[in-house]
Design a protein around this nucleic acid. Structure first.
Lengths: 329, 329
DNA sequence: TATATTTGCGTAATCGGTTACGCAAATATA
DNA sequence: TATATTTGCGTAACCGATTACGCAAATATA
């Protein structure tokens, strides 16, 4: 079945193209009966307004892009996943579609970034949600500004304070540190992938008096690195009695290795993870973790976008980290 | 800075619009020097061809949509996440963008579906990847056909054999059943959310001689339901010595409850999960699971799409389930 | 009833590209 | 050198919608 365009369709049902167009758009005056008739006929004959033509003549794009830095390694990225799901639920009934735009770190980034740049600047997106965390994120914000596309950034980004849903890793880490001193721990360790300064600093602050005892271990961000960290710690600094891991996957690896070696958690070593991904509670012992409320953050960011698209103003939002207590600390 | 359109841009740099257009498109004859000159100038002046106009005059869409049924409950959907990540890596350097289209089950589905329908039929998408598993998926395939958009479906869908990347849950479950009889288990149970016939049937087949002893428990698909299942089983059928769970989250819940009650796994009860999500190995004991190779499936599906978009033919692909042995069985 | 206002719709310009067609210049062939 | 072919580019007709403008009919106001 050949596809109808507006000219054919309108002439078949005996009205003008303008009227057909008005039937499908809120704008313009049209008799309610005519509108219903046209909509009905469109259903019968299978007429669907070409979306590109619409976008061309009256610029709009109901597509929002979610941009985020790709994790190194092949592990599935639960972090982003939880944000994405939050974003999606907020967008669900808004008529806004979601496009996902991962970008790799450094090496290939330039190419990918350039692709996105062109895409956005040529009008492909109506809104952008940018997850901070790499140099590329900053570039993307520039692109958003240049293209005059409404955007919000998730997380910390220097220089950007206007459109954000932010959280403070440092504050979260501080919570963990304080908890450790409060529960009488003496020899803390921090297991971090590619070092996140805020986390480390916050942790140090929270650790207060015992902060001079801190050991830092950094390898990668994956399960295996958590396990390695445990083994090295065991070998080089057996007195360690509490650790903060930069993410939950790392914590899972750490716990696993600890169990294999016979260490008990939290008695011998208390461990706290970061992000509070939903599998944290599946672990044994169930993992205590600094919750970033990722789902909530995603939701908020998307709602902000929705407001911007409605022409409303928004105020930056700050989401406080919360320490979720389970069994590992 | 006002945005340039092709007419302005071309007249500023002293060529015709046709030449500018040719510079950016593979089609058409153009002197290599002219092309380079134009591209350079475009960079300087910040000219970006309007994407809607391009799509209008020469129909193409470099957007692929990933459609999938939404999980009941608010849990993050790791299943889809792993597929999505596979899809993304395959699409990464292809220039094809990915849009995600979750659709809720039943209740609100009609509205959402209608939105997607209109969107696709009006030319919004260049390709569709449809995850089977609900009545809506079938509808979406119809939409794809009607809109003449290349598509591939992931999973089983009756009537659709041409464009698929499929797997057989039944085959996977059979593996689990066989393993249980081989290892001398006698009283099997199946923990399933909304019952998946194939899984149950396959499990029964694999169970062979001990299949008449099978108990079936079905509640929901979440962690809590797995835990509940354990408790009920313990109360009503304490002799149970092996279970297959319809997914890994369920299995995680089951294991957790088992540990709390003091039962040991796998000695007292062997448990096998389904999907082999990446957190399976984080659990204690590490969860044995029927792997669907979701990441691989996503990759394949996307590659099929790429082939179709290149005008090549594809042959349906079948991905065999594999039982991944870890510590829980 | 005469005039002013509103409503409903059609005509045609416009959005910003792509590309068929044709022509002149450059190159190849005889 | 004369002719045939190829190359490079410009002109203008599309692609399929939206919407400013204007007119006639319907309704409101005097």
């Amino acid at each position: 079945m050949k596809k109808l365009n507006i000219k054919e369709f309108s002439s078949i049902i005996g009205v003008s193209t303008a009227t057909v167009s008005r039937a499908f758009n809120a704008s313009g005056r049209i008799n309610e009966k005519t509108r219903r008739y046209i909509i009905e006929k469109a259903g019968e004959l299978g007429y669907h307004a070409n979306i590109h033509a619409r976008n061309l003549s009256s610029p709009r794009s109901n597509i929002a892009g979610l941009f985020y830095p790709l994790l190194a390694g092949e592990q599935p990225d639960y972090f982003i996943n939880e944000i994405q799901q939050g974003v999606q639920s907020a967008l669900m009934d808004s008529g806004i579609l979601l496009q996902v735009h991962p970008f790799p770190a450094r090496a290939d980034a330039e190419l990918t970034l350039e692709t996105y740049r062109t895409y956005v600047l040529s009008g492909g997106l109506g809104a952008m949600i940018i997850v901070a965390g790499s140099a590329e994120s900053v570039e993307l914000v520039k692109v958003a500004r240049e293209a005059e596309v409404p955007y919000v950034v998730i997380g910390h980004m220097s220089g950007e304070t206007r459109y954000t849903v932010s959280f403070d890793n440092g504050q979260g880490a501080r919570l963990a540190g304080k908890f450790f001193v409060r529960t009488g721990r003496r020899f803390p360790a921090y297991i971090g992938g590619h070092l996140d300064k805020r986390k480390k600093l916050g942790f140090l602050e929270g650790l207060g008096e015992i902060s001079d005892k801190l050991t830092i271990h950094s390898g990668g961000d994956a399960f295996i690195h958590g396990a390695n960290a445990f083994r090295e710690l065991r070998a080089n600094r057996p007195e360690t009695d509490c650790v903060l891991c930069a993410n939950d996957v790392l914590a899972a690896g750490f716990i696993k290795a600890a169990q294999e070696s016979g260490a008990t958690i939290p008695e011998d070593i208390a461990v706290i993870g970061f992000d509070d991904l939903s599998f944290a509670r599946y672990l044994t012992p169930a993992l205590s973790s600094v919750s970033l409320k990722l789902n909530h953050i995603g939701l908020s960011a998307a709602r902000q976008i929705l407001k911007l698209l409605d022409g409303n103003d928004i105020t930056p939002e700050f989401v406080e980290c919360e320490l979720i207590f389970r069994d590992s600390a």
